[in-house]
Simulated scan of single mutants.
Amino acid sequence: MGKATETTLEIDFGALEHNYHFLRGKLKPDTKFLAVMKAFAYGSDAERIALKMQALGVDYFAVAYSKEGIALRKAGIQKPILVLHPLPLHFEELISHCLEPSIYSRKVLLQFLKTAKKLAQTNYPVHLKFNTGLNRLGFAEKDIDFITEELKQQDEIKVISNFSHLAASEDANEKDFTLRQIKRFDRIAETIALQLGYRPFRHLLNTSGILNYAEAQYDMVRSGIGLYGYGNHPEIDKRLKPVAILKTVISQIHEIAPGDTVGYNRAFITKDYRMTATLPLGHADGIGRQYGQGNTFVTVNGEMAFIVGNVCMDMIMIDVTGIACKEGDEVIVFGHHPSAETFAATANTISYELLTGISQRVNRTFIGY
């Protein structure tokens, strides 16, 4: 690992490989593994991450939108790519790049059928998304008859999988709800198979599902946050490795006298002599204002240094009183200590939001690639 000379998101491919093998080890040998690449691969670098995952042998990829899948195709990804939230506006482009849509409503089904017919497709692969309790996207169970009647009248598309999404697989207090979701998905998948006359493959589990409900792994699992080093539980996090480490440097150090203030709106007022350091990143880089006012710490030469005052657009100030440091020294914003989960928790949010929010203007570097 090199020392940072500017604000840098360091991407560790050795950590990525470790996390993949850890999660893969929870599964049966013949269970397919889908790697989720949406949101720039959780804020890192989707193209490079996907190429590494393809080399490691993953079976499928998923993105949120067609644009993300097209970028992966252009980068050289040849494995199947599931588009989780395709928009009808992009259906023709989706087909032209051999992406596989999630079909989640009656309207979307009819619109995709129309597009597939227009483009003279035969047995184009699609995935049926069912809502089993998350209430975000997905057909209702009562839609099954409508779906199968429409499908029997055409040969433009073919259902290759049925899937759903667990709402609270990381929460032990919601185990009964999760088990009801699994049971509902079982019933839906069986009914679809009977009415279609063949059995599409099934997938339900996300990262926490893999860890907590491996008995419901079906034919494939989907992992996003786990690949990037977070398992939604402190004990699991200890066994995973963070892929993204956000580093920056000290631009300037100030000696602040009693009664002096720091930053916009004079939000931090000193009661005694303090030393502060200014860092070249801010809310435009994904470190929002909620992390200011002494809520959150970074690490300077192994020591905790809390953010003081309001986070600025391009800068934050930290209290380095009593810490041996100088201008140009490296600062760890998150990674190993604090982890992205620890950092995010100080602002009552989660690692997902923090990681995916890191601005694309932050330089990315790669180790172990």
Rank of each mutant, 00 (worst) to 15 (best):
G322E: 04
N212S: 05
Q290C: 08
E303N: 08
H97Y: 15
H336S: 14
E341C: 03
I103M: 05
F297Q: 04
L211E: 00
K32A: 14
F306C: 00
T276P: 02
F146M: 03
I269T: 03
F163R: 05
E150M: 12
K26S: 09
V221W: 07
I316G: 04
L110E: 15
A324I: 04
D45L: 03
E10A: 12
G76I: 05
G286M: 01
E330C: 11
H336Q: 14
N19I: 09
G282T: 09
I318L: 00
E255R: 02
I103E: 06
R364T: 04
F146A: 07
K117I: 02
A305W: 03
L56T: 10
T321A: 04
I350F: 12
A167D: 13
A4R: 03
S169A: 15
T7G: 05
A55W: 09
H85T: 14
V298C: 13
S208H: 07
M1H: 14
E149H: 14
F22K: 05
M275H: 08
T191R: 15
Q54H: 02
T148S: 08
P234T: 08
M53W: 03
G231N: 09
L9P: 08
V333M: 11
V320A: 03
V63F: 01
A324V: 09
Y198D: 11
G209S: 07
I367C: 03
R361T: 14
S161M: 06
H18T: 12
E100Y: 08
F185L: 12
Q111R: 12
L279W: 02
L87G: 07
S164Y: 09
G368V: 00
E353F: 00
I192Q: 06
A284N: 15
L355W: 09
M313A: 13
K152D: 11
G309C: 01
K32Q: 15
D45A: 11
L151R: 09
N173H: 14
D319A: 00
L110G: 01
S161R: 05
F112N: 06
L196D: 05
I253T: 13
L72A: 04
T115L: 02
G43S: 06
K247M: 03
L94E: 13
K326H: 10
F163V: 10
S161V: 12
I188F: 04
N363D: 08
Y124D: 11
N131P: 09
Y264I: 10
A39P: 11
T122G: 06
D237H: 12
A193S: 15
I236R: 10
V298I: 07
F22V: 12
V362N: 04
G57E: 12
T191Q: 15
V249G: 08
Y60I: 13
Y104F: 14
Q195K: 15
H233T: 07
G322W: 05
E341D: 14
N348K: 15
K32Y: 14
A64E: 10
L281E: 04
V298N: 03
G294W: 01
F40I: 11
A267Y: 02
D143W: 10
Y198S: 06
P234R: 07
E93K: 13
A120V: 08
G224A: 11
P88M: 10
L354T: 08
G288L: 12
